[in-house]
Write a protein that binds this DNA or RNA. Structure first.
Lengths: 225, 225
DNA sequence: TCAAACCTTACGCCAACTGTAAGAGTAATT
DNA sequence: AATTACTCTTACAGTTGGCGTAAGGTTTGA
């Protein structure tokens, strides 16, 4: 379902954009910058975010970076300030495309469709240090080689990469794997850790996961053994 | 290895672009439009193609479409004619981004890096019509949705996409699936075809594979049912 | 040295994938 | 319309891989 979130302060513009997009058959949610936007956006689970940078403060860039870190879909940035600096900054912070206002509706639509297409087609890659995880195929690239991960292994690896280099607590793992930290035997976690480690060894990433006694585990920027 | 191909007729501009990119550490190959460009480009195996649309004839668009069909990496189109029509057309034909000349070097670099990032590493994507097959993860993207393919299904789909719109003979399928067309019950092929078709139906691609009585099968540019 | 925390291995269940078999459906030909 | 060759579908069983359980071994740190 093509579900677009518009983040825009100007009420008039918001209506206009919404109208354009809806005419194309998109379902649209508009959010003003003041409505705790990041949480609201994530909850809307958009297939694309249309982010206006006309915001008085620098918060637009911050939103951009946060959204990207959270793995929210493609971000298309709009701005009226025709400045190269803004464009570079936005792209660097994770925006996937950039358009100046005013912008012809057809151009806007074309760019939106292109982004959706790129995102739908492209592997979603999660990176940290020498690890790259393809979230769709559950394939882990490390150094030169790659391995297929099982579902559980991928969930854990995702957690580790997302939190690295911080420690991932056992509770986080429980929640991510089984939805709750209650009523679950601790051993099952250890078994899954063993399995993940064994799989990592296949690509020469021995000892990449350190155990933090009593707390949890930690992915460390390992060496090729 | 970041390997960029520039397709540009103007000798002076070509030098300039090449210079800019090489300063950023890219390895660059320049190709003029007359050097049977498509084959040359494919052979260079670029991680990005910089395509100038200043070409006298309409051949630039044609190159764009052909490259995309062959699964060559991201295509960034440059043009001096600041026309919305060109941009829409290029994007529609498979270009991944579009910039007007003159273009600030920093902007060019930023866009190139963004595209590379989106495309990320290696994945060999196979495309035909509305089908895109990720050969690593055996994931098929069609229209908006995607499905996981089993090993056999992926092998078959790969054959179909590589040969489309030509007919794929039963023998080709036998060879690809079981190494030989001898000593194999024909029924097993039919069963696998049924299964592939059922899987394609999941992404709304009904009737995408036509059977050619006595010969084989054929992937056709289907509709979203 | 001792106990808590952690690791490993083996086992069985389950789901997904694949090939086999048998019968039903379909298209071309007479 | 009947025949026949070709194709499709469904059900079944063997195999494999992922997962959780259980039980015993190993490490860590006081």
């Amino acid at each position: 379902m093509a579900n677009i979130v518009i983040v825009e302060d100007d009420h008039f513009l918001r209506e206009e954009l919404q109208h354009i997009l809806q005419k194309e058959g998109y379902s649209v949610v508009s959010i003003s910058t003041f409505d705790a936007p990041v949480e609201a956006i994530i909850q809307a689970n958009p297939s694309l975010v249309l982010l206006d940078l006309n915001l008085p403060d620098m918060s637009g860039f911050q939103i951009c970076r946060t959204l990207k870190a959270k793995g929210v879909g493609p971000i298309l940035v709009l701005t009226a300030r025709n400045q190269l600096r803004d464009e570079l900054h936005a792209l660097e912070l994770g925006a996937d495309d950039f358009l100046n206002k005013p912008c012809h509706p057809k151009r806007l639509i074309a760019r939106i469709e292109k982004l959706q297409q790129l995102y739908a087609t492209m592997p979603r890659l999660l990176k940290w240090a020498q690890f790259t995880l393809d979230e769709r195929g559950n394939i882990l690239y490390a150094a030169q080689q790659s391995v297929a991960l099982s579902e559980n292994e991928a969930i854990m690896m995702k957690l580790f990469i997302n939190n690295s280099p911080a420690i991932v607590t056992k509770e986080q793992l429980f929640i991510e794997l089984w939805g709750s930290s209650e009523f679950v035997d601790e051993n099952i976690l250890q078994v899954n850790m063993t399995r993940l480690r064994k799989t990592l060894d296949k690509v020469g990433m021995s000892r990449s996961i350190k155990t933090v006694r009593g707390i949890g585990y930690q992915l460390i920027g390992g060496e090729t053994s």
